[in-house]
Design a binder for these strands. Sequence first.
RNA 1: GCCAUCUUAGCUCAGGGGUAGAGCAACGGUUUCGUAAACCGUAGGUCCGGGGUUCAAAUCCCCGAGAUGGCUCCA
Length: 645
Amino acid sequence: MATGREILEARGGLGADVIAVRVGADVVDLMTSLPEGTSPSDVVPIRASDPDGLAVIRHSTAHVMADAVQRLFPGTQVTIGPAIDNGFYYDFARPSGQFTDEDLEKIEAAMRDIIGGNHDFRREVVSRPEAESLFSKLGETYKLEILAGVSEPITLYRHGGWVDLCAGPHVPNTRFLRAVKLTHVAGAYWRGDERNPMLQRIYGTAFATDAELAAHLAHIEEAKKRDHRKLGKELGLLGFHPWAPASPFFLPRGAALYSLLVDYVRALYREHGYSEVVTPQVYDIELMKRSGHYDNYREGMFFAVTADGGELSEPEKEGDAPRFTGDVRWGVKPMNCPGHCLLYAMDKRSYRDLPMRIADFGRLHRYERSGVTQGLTRVRTFAQDDAHVFCTFDQVADETRDFLGMLDRVYRDFAFEDVRIALATRPERSLGTAEQWTLAEETLAHAVRSAGREFVVNPGEGAFYGPKLEFQLKDALGRPWQLGTIQVDFNMPERFGLEYTGADNVAHQPVMLHRAILGSIERFLGVLIEHVGGHFPAWLAPEQVCVVTVSEKFNDYAREAIGSLRAAGLRVASDLGGDKLGAKIRNARAFRYPYLAVVGGREAEQRGLAVRQGDADLGFLTLDAFAARVRAESVAPSLRLSSPI
RNA sequence: GCCAUCUUAGCUCAGGGGUAGAGCAACGGUUUCGUAAACCGUAGGUCCGGGGUUCAAAUCCCCGAGAUGGCUCCA
C-alpha cells in the first residue's frame, strides 16, 4: 500500500509545510505505508501549524533533544519523551551529575547542529528479539522495560545515527524543526511513581515558526506578571511567614477582598435558600473515626495535643521539635461535613424540613506535603463556600440542577469562560457498596445531561465517600484548577445514623450533598487575581476609588469629599501627601483602583471630582453623581436586578 | 516526601574569601504643583537559621527551614 506522501503527491497536494497525514482518527507520518484498503480520499494532510502537526513537531524535537543529550553526556539513558500541551519533555537517567541551565544552552546548540544536518526520520518495523538485542546492546534498560509492555508492531525511529523505540509519528526531516527552545529541568519519577528512581526531565517547546515561538514565550512572560503571588505582594493583599508554611496572611486589602467575596456568596445563599452555620474547629478524634476520615484521610490531617494528660518535653538538640508523650485525642477539621452531620442530628428532622441546606465558611486545615504547596492555590489552611444539602434521594436531581444554575451565575459574574465539568468516579479507597456508587454516579451524570451540559469522566478521582462533579477553570498560566464541586454521599448519613421522618411516619435516611462553587476561597482568589490581572471590578475591589489632591492646599476639601463618599457607602482610599499629581497618579494606578478621582481648585469650587476609570477620562462629576454611579456597580451583576440600590 | 534552583535593607535586585551596595519605599526638610516618578538630606542589615573549613565566610562545605519549577498529557 502507498504511503501518505505518495498519495498526496499523486494528488499534487504535498505542500512544503505538510508534515504528516490524518487517516480517520490516526495521525500517520508521510513515510509510513497506509493500511490496505485506505481510500486516498480519507488521507488528509496535516500542516506544521495544525494542532496535530504541532504535536508531531514537538515529539520529533524531543528525539533530537535526546540525541543531543546522549552526544554531550555519554552513558545517559533515555526513557520517555512525549509531546505535551505546551511543548514536550524527555526523561533521562543520567548516571552522575545533574543538568544545569548552562547545559540546556549546550544541548540547544547541539540540537541546532543536528537539525541543520537535514536528517530524514526513518521508520522501521522490527521483531521483538531484534528490538531487545538492539536496546540491550545500547544499554538502554528503561527502553527494554518499556519494550516488555508494548504490543506489536514494534517500531523504531531513526534520524542520523540516533535510534529510539517509538510509536511515532514524526516529521519527514529534521529541517521541519525550526523554532525550538528548552525551558527548564525538573526531577520526575520513573513512571510517575515515587517508589521508582528519580529521573531528570528536560522540558522544552517547539513551534512551526519562530514568530509563534516568540509569541508563546511572550505569553508566558505576560502570565508571570499576573502571577497572584507577585500581584498579592504588590497590591498589599497577602503575606506569608516561614512559621506558618503554606498558610496565607490576608493583609487589610486582601481581607477586604476576602470578605466581599464571602458576602457575595451569602447574598446568593439568601436567594437559593441556604442557612449559614458556625461549627467547631477541633473535634474529638471519635468524630473522624465515625466519619471515616481517620481511616481514609489521616495523612491529610493535622492533629492537636494538649498538656492535659500528656507530657511536652523540650528537645535534646537545638532545632528539633519538642516531643509529646500522651494521647492524641483531637483532630483539626479538614472538612465541615462530619460536624454538619452532628448538627443535623441535633434535632428530629421531618421530610418537611428537607432539603436542608447548611452553609459553613469554617476554616479548614489539611496537611499538604511540603513540595506541593504553592501561593494561594495549594495551601494548608483555607475556607470553602461549603454547604451540605440534606435531602431525599428524589430531591438529588433538582438540587443538582439548582446548583448548576447557581454555578453558572457565579462564573458569569466573574466572567470565567471555558469551565469544564468532570465526573469523578469511585476511587480505590472508598466507603459504601458498588450499587450505591453506581446509583450516585448515574444520578449526577443525568443531572448534568438534563441541564444540557457536557462532561468528561475522571475514573477513580471521586472522594472516598462518594462520586463528584468537578468544575475546572484555568489560571493565567494555563494551569487547570478544580474550583466548584458537588458530591453525592450516601455513606456519611449512614455512618452517623441520620434520619428524617417521612410522610409515611417512618424513619428514612437522607442523602447528603457536599457542594461548593468557588471551592477554596483562597484558591479562587488566586485564580481570580490572575484572571483580572489585579483589576478587580468595583463590587469586589478593596477600595473602589482613590482620591488624590493636586496639592496639599486642597486636602481640606478632599477630606470633606472622602467623608461624603464614605457616607454614601463607597470604599475610598486617598493620597493627600506632598507628591506631585503625576506621581500620585502613577502610584494609584499601580494599585489598580477601579476609579481615580483628582481634586484641585476647580473641583473644590464646584463640589465634585475629576474622575478617570482606568485609562478612560470621565471628566467632572459631582460627588452625588459619582457616588450613585459607583453604588450601582457595587453589587455583582447577577444580583443587581434583585437588589434595591 | 523526592529532584533541581533560590533566600542580601520594607520592596526589586547587584556583589561572591579581606570594612555591606544601588534604585524605589520610609523618615526629616524644601517645593504647593492639573493627570504615569520634584529636589536635598537622614536612617535602615543576624547577607534565611545552625554547624564546619580558614588568619579571615554573606561568599566554600555540611545540616535544617522556607520559597520556586517539576514528579506518566505514558514507547
